[in-house]
């Protein structure tokens, strides 16, 4: 069930603002049909989450179609015009470039980049945020981007690195396939971070865009000899803190409006 300001929301009216069969309608319908009550302070806050989830899915689809290579952290590669490769295999933003340009470069020069699945998730989140936030705001908020895995992450995105239990799975969620019996020669296949694209499809860098059984089969092919446990999809999800991001969005949008006015 969806409530706005603690009152039941007119979900039909909100849905009608989006095309039939759109991702936004799928999300609204899932929330509305849930046994859990999803309370939003304002309609704008709900619309913000729908927009960001849509852009997360778009960014994931775009990265899937790109030429980003799969490399372990030991062999990761990047465009050195924008990123400094650190000894742990992560990429730190060069101090002399704009964050927005560096994120766009990953997509426009994807053949110059190669990394693991967790880094690809961060690339997706930053690209989605770049589509939602005004560019100037994005560059002010995300000045210290470090692309690796969840070990070093900016506070604004901290929650995507933590898995939480959930009543409902939604497009734009981060999910994780775990491979408990992975071959110790290939620890990079101990699991796969994916973005839920909706319709039962997931994108995970290194495997691709498939439904869950294909991810499980791929991971199972990288198990230790005589393995007895299959890979599986965890129920928990990683989600950005939409409330905090919406507050930042409002703050910077208001600043931008007052400047332009």
């Amino acid at each position: 069930m969806i409530t706005i300001g603690n009152k039941p929301a007119d979900t039909a009216a909100i849905s009608s603002e989006y095309p039939a069969n759109s991702l936004e309608r799928v999300i609204i319908n899932t929330l509305a049909a849930s046994s859990k009550t999803y309370n939003y302070a304002t309609k704008e806050r709900l619309q913000f989450e729908l927009k960001l989830r849509r852009e997360i899915v778009n960014a994931a689809e775009e990265l899937y179609r790109s030429h980003l290579k799969f490399r372990t952290f030991y062999n990761s590669i990047r465009n050195e015009d924008y990123w400094i490769r650190k000894p742990d295999g992560g990429f730190a933003l060069r101090p002399d470039v704009k964050p927005s340009d560096a994120i766009r470069d990953i997509y426009s020069n994807s053949h110059k980049y190669g990394t693991e699945c967790a880094t690809a998730m961060l690339m997706v989140y930053y690209k989605a945020l770049l589509e939602v936030f005004p560019e100037e705001a994005f560059n002010k908020i995300f000045r210290d981007i470090y692309l690796m895995n969840w070990h070093r992450i900016e506070p604004e995105l901290r929650e995507v690195s933590l898995m939480q239990s959930t009543y409902d799975h939604l497009p734009g969620d981060r999910r994780y396939f775990r491979n408990p019996d992975v071959n110790p020669e290939t620890p990079e296949w101990q699991g796969e971070n994916v973005i839920d694209l909706g319709g039962g499809f997931y994108y995970g860098h290194g495997i691709g865009r498939y439904m869950a059984p294909m991810f499980i089969d791929s991971l199972n092919q990288n198990r230790i000899a005589y393995a007895d446990e299959s890979a599986y999809l965890l129920d928990s999800v990683g989600r950005p803190n939409f409330d905090r991001l919406f507050s930042l969005y409002q703050k910077y949008s208001a600043t931008a409006s007052s400047v332009s006015a």
Binding site: W150, H151, S161, M163, Y176, R178, G191
Partner: peptide, 10 residues
């Protein structure tokens, strides 16, 4: 638990 840094920061 099988949790590692590839899955979560904590």
């Amino acid at each position: 638990t099988g949790e590692h840094f590839l899955q979560t920061s904590e």
